[in-house]
């Protein structure tokens, strides 16, 4: 009995050490001459040579959702296309949205963030963005039967949003909402809307529109034309990679791949038909 336990301990220990060593091996922060084995012309560095490590707050349908390793969505496919163009593999790292910029800014966690992230001045203070790749507006979503029709109607009411998003910021700074409740997952905000705990949800239009499919009792009643642009985010100063990605993005737009992806995940602009508010 004693011997077997000892053997078990030893095996466990070896496994532990083995895993640790393997992990250490992958942990190349600053790959001095790291990009050595890839064959592309551009000379940028990635955390792991040959791989683009991408942070993303999954799920956020229809941009990034699904199960690993084959995530789905607009951002996912666009990133895959860009990485392909650059001769890189892609590895997604699921990260909550409220810490995603902080993690990026501190460095070492991912090469880039692709998470329906709006380019804003505040964020530009801490991270750098690629060229915009998507135009999104905010939207006002309510439960059917509510008498809220425009953004002005939320005055004094409880509004839900996802923690750390521009929707939350908009609700707090640009509306007269009585209370803004933030949730870790946007889906929790939608659920709160369904149960009546919040009376409206302010969130990116494509996402809210997409959610209508699975939550028929919710409805986007107004588009808030903030004219937000999504961009990919990078650690400040990582200019070589940003340039490479911008280049790839351009090519992907040119050769029609972008349109395919757009058609598949967004379709005709779903928010086109929504009445503009303010």
């Amino acid at each position: 009995m004693n011997k077997r336990f000892l053997l078990f301990l030893l095996t466990a220990l070896l496994l532990l050490v083995g895993t640790a060593l393997a992990a250490c091996g992958d942990d190349d922060d600053d790959d001095g001459g790291g990009g050595g084995t890839d064959t592309t012309a551009a000379d940028f560095d990635t955390l792991e040579s040959g791989t683009l490590t991408v942070g993303s707050d999954i799920p956020y349908a229809p941009f990034e959702f699904g199960d690993p390793p084959e995530y789905k969505g607009f951002d996912v496919e666009l990133v895959n296309a860009i990485a392909d163009n650059l001769g890189l593999e892609v590895k997604f790292v699921k990260t909550p949205f409220d810490v995603i910029f902080r993690n990026l800014a501190q460095g070492g966690k991912f090469d880039m963030v692709a998470s329906s992230t709006t380019i804003t001045p505040e964020r530009e203070k801490v991270v750098a963005f690629s060229d915009p790749y998507f135009v999104a507006d905010q939207s006002l979503m309510i439960k059917k039967g509510s008498d809220i029709k425009t953004v002005d109607d939320v005055a004094g009411k409880i509004v839900g949003a996802q923690l750390g998003t521009t929707g939350a910021a908009f609700a707090k700074d640009e509306t007269d909402a009585g209370e803004v409740r933030t949730y870790d997952l946007v889906d929790d905000a939608f659920k709160a809307l369904q149960t009546g705990q919040v009376e409206a949800v302010i969130n990116d239009c494509p996402i809210s529109k997409y959610a209508e499919r699975s939550k028929p009792d919710l409805e986007v009643v107004a588009k808030i034309p903030t004219g937000e642009n999504y961009g990919f985010a990078f650690e400040k100063g990582n200019d070589a990679l940003i340039e490479a990605v911008n280049g790839a993005l351009d090519e992907v737009k040119q050769d029609g791949t972008y349109d395919e992806i757009f058609e598949k995940w967004v379709g005709s602009d779903p928010c086109e038909s929504i009445v503009e508010s303010e």
């Binding site: 505040e122 409740r181 870790d184």
Partner: peptide, 22 residues
């Protein structure tokens, strides 16, 4: 906090999300 109550940890996280500082 997960159901929306802003107790002290959530408040800290909201500040974190807005200022990118912990």
């Amino acid at each position: 906090q997960v159901i929306g109550v802003v107790e002290v940890v959530k408040a800290g996280r909201e500040v974190q999300a807005e200022t990118f500082n912990s």
